[in-house]
Design a protein around this nucleic acid. Sequence first.
DNA 1: GTCTATAGACGGATAGAC
DNA 2: GTCTATCCGTCTATAGAC
Lengths: 199, 199
Amino acid sequence: MRTVDPAKHAAKRRAILDAAAGCFARDGFEKTSTADLCRAAGISSGSLFHYFPTKRAVFVGIFEADTADNDELLAAAAELADPWEGVLAVVEQMTSVLSLPGVVRLVLEAGAQAARDPEFAELIRGNDDRMRAGLAGLVERGVRAGRLAPVLSSADAGNWIVALVDALLSRASLDEGLDVRHERAVLRKVLETILVPVG
Amino acid sequence: MRTVDPAKHAAKRRAILDAAAGCFARDGFEKTSTADLCRAAGISSGSLFHYFPTKRAVFVGIFEADTADNDELLAAAAELADPWEGVLAVVEQMTSVLSLPGVVRLVLEAGAQAARDPEFAELIRGNDDRMRAGLAGLVERGVRAGRLAPVLSSADAGNWIVALVDALLSRASLDEGLDVRHERAVLRKVLETILVPVG
DNA sequence: GTCTATAGACGGATAGAC
DNA sequence: GTCTATCCGTCTATAGAC
């Protein structure tokens, strides 16, 4: 008999990843034990290692899921008529997690882990690269349409938009009382100064 | 002993911190064992715990030492006649560690640790605050002298200069092959666009 | 004999993987 | 639940300066 239901398998996997994300965000990768993961997901240790070969695989799995989300976001932005609006939409979405401390911490943890896990770093960098390329494309379109007159090349602009968002995230994680609304406004001002929307 | 030699004690402490910084940068806080620290510093566990009560205290000690360094840097910059040059000097110094992968990784690790160690976060944030305030002061002086015409308030400018540098650091940690020279040039261009040096 | 500095063994606890 | 490995920090012991 076929005891394998792929949909159910994927759903369980996702449920484990969701529970694990909370653990990793709260305690970090190293200090999260596999027992913690089992408890959070409400499963046995046998079950955990059925779905993932190692603790690391659980952590990596969380960020593999991000790739698709980012592509969606960029595709949606690319469909907007105004590239400047597209840039703003992407930035807004990227900074929307500022109100979710767990996500910010998870990003921090990913950065630290990537520093000593080259394979994982490649995954993270791949995600970032897509984001940078997508934003660079939006800027380039804006330039061609005469909508943007950036002081940087499109490629540099894409890179630094992502960098600015990252900087805001990391500061938010350190400064609990940060005025998110204000900083987002300043970020927008900086973007305007660099990208120079026209018309 | 009456004859405690404070200089010798401080020197040994510093030597341990230096050795530890390498370990923490390479392996992270959690994965660095106290035995690793002892090996790196060439001392015994008894000695290590004579100078520091816990492993965490060693880690924290590394960043406590930074406070003084930053203050020095800001003081030196404040003495320059031209505030814009002062800003550039500070930024140059802050980004000089880009070629030292160890330092970059240590910064990453600090961010991750701060996310779950409020007391340590306060130390890091304190260091950052001084930096932000110092830069804001430089910008403010530039404005009063008619040397700068920034598109942001001085306080916001100080905040975002630090953010820009942080952004560059975090990107460098992920992307080994980053063209540091180019990115520093772009950073300078961005600073010029935001701060608008006049004359 | 008191104090600092050093060394290194050891214990109780906990981890990951199965 | 098992099994092996590892870890942090304590504890005891030794050496020398006063």
